[in-house]
Every structure is written in structure tokens, then in C-alpha cells.
């Protein structure tokens, strides 16, 4: 589908409707394809840069619709449903909202945007405590994954688990 707005702007618009949501953006020195190869890989790269994710399993894919089972480092499990397509991901469960976007930056590189956090159950709202800090951590990890050689990525994952 063609949009009049790019994916990062879409994320800002979505976040505008979600009280408590913060959006963290960063320009990464890599093409969209390379960045999304990490972000959009829900069972791989995604779990590596999202600070609280221990394991993610894709249960179902139908077109851009996706359903995943995520386990956190603290033992929580979440069944997330939503949309995944190149440059765009929006997922929600009863207790979580996750939004990710990536779009080519006119000056070069890729602008990524992250939002989401702990959802106020069944509401379009996020518990605002520590949300920005978690998103910043995710952005830093993502940048490291995108810009580091492959071996470094594996080590950082081992060190966390």
C-alpha cells in the first residue's frame, strides 16, 4: 500500500493517539534494507535489541498480519498481534504495545523510530514510567547491531542471557 506519509511519520502519528507514548528516533549509518534486516527479524535481531525480550516466536503470518509469542527476561509472556512489513511494525498484546519504523533519510542512512512500552490493559495508553529510557536503550543496542561486525552481535546476546 502506498502512503502519503513515510513510516517514521506514521509512527509519530500513531504515538500521538497513545497517551504516555514516547518516540525515540535515530539516524543509523546503513541502508534501510540492512537496518530492517535486524529490526524486522522478529525471532532474531528484534529480540537482540529490545532490552526486555528473551525469546520471540512467530506463531502466524498472513500477508502483513503477524502473531507472535514473546517471553521477557522477567518471565512474562505476551501474545502480540499486529502488522509487519518492510520499514514498519506495530504490535499489541493486552499488556504491551510495540511500534517500530524505518525510512531512508534524505541526507543518507536510515531514520529509525521506536515507540511502545507497557500498555495500560486494554487501553490505547502506555504506562509512562521509564518508557523513554527503555526506548533509548533499544535504540543504542539497535545501532550497535547494525553497525557492528556479525561476531560482536552474538557476543552481546550471550552476555545478556
Amino acid at each position: 500500500m502506498m502512503y502519503a506519509v513515510d513510516a517514521v511519520t506514521r509512527l509519530r502519528i500513531m504515538a500521538a493517539a497513545v497517551p504516555g507514548a514516547r518516540v525515540v528516533e535515530r539516524v543509523l549509518p546503513a541502508p534501510l534494507e540492512a537496518v530492517w534486516a535486524v529490526m524486522g527479524d522478529l525471532e532474531g535481531g528484534f529480540g537482540d535489541f529490545q532490552p526486555d525480550m528473551r525469546r520471540v516466536r512467530v506463531l502466524r503470518v498472513s500477508g502483513d498480519r503477524v502473531e507472535v509469542l514473546a517471553s521477557s527476561r522477567h518471565g512474562f509472556r505476551a501474545r502480540l498481534r499486529g502488522h509487519l512489513q518492510p520499514g514498519w511494525c506495530w504490535l499489541q498484546s493486552r499488556f504491551l504495545i510495540i511500534g517500530m519504523a524505518a525510512a531512508p533519510e534524505p541526507g543518507g542512512g536510515t531514520r529509525v523510530a521506536l515507540t511502545g512500552g507497557v500498555r495500560i490493559p486494554a487501553r490505547a495508553a502506555i504506562v509512562p514510567l521509564g518508557t523513554r529510557r527503555e526506548l533509548e536503550r533499544a535504540a543504542v543496542r539497535l545501532e550497535a547491531l547494525v553497525t557492528s561486525p556479525p561476531g560482536v552481535h552474538t557476543e552481546s546476546k550471550r552476555g545478556r542471557s
Binding site: 500500500m1 502512503y3 502519503a4 506514521r10 493517539a17 498481534r81 499486529g82 502488522h83 506495530w90 495508553a125
Partner: peptide
Amino acid sequence: AARAGNTLALHDLLDHLTP
């Protein structure tokens, strides 16, 4: 549905309203 708290409906509403 979006006002009731469903962010996936919010997502579809954005697609719907953009054009």
C-alpha cells in the same frame, strides 16, 4: 474501536483516513 483502546484499529484507521 480505536477510541475503545484497540491500537490495531487505530492502525487501520490511519490507513483509512490518510487518503
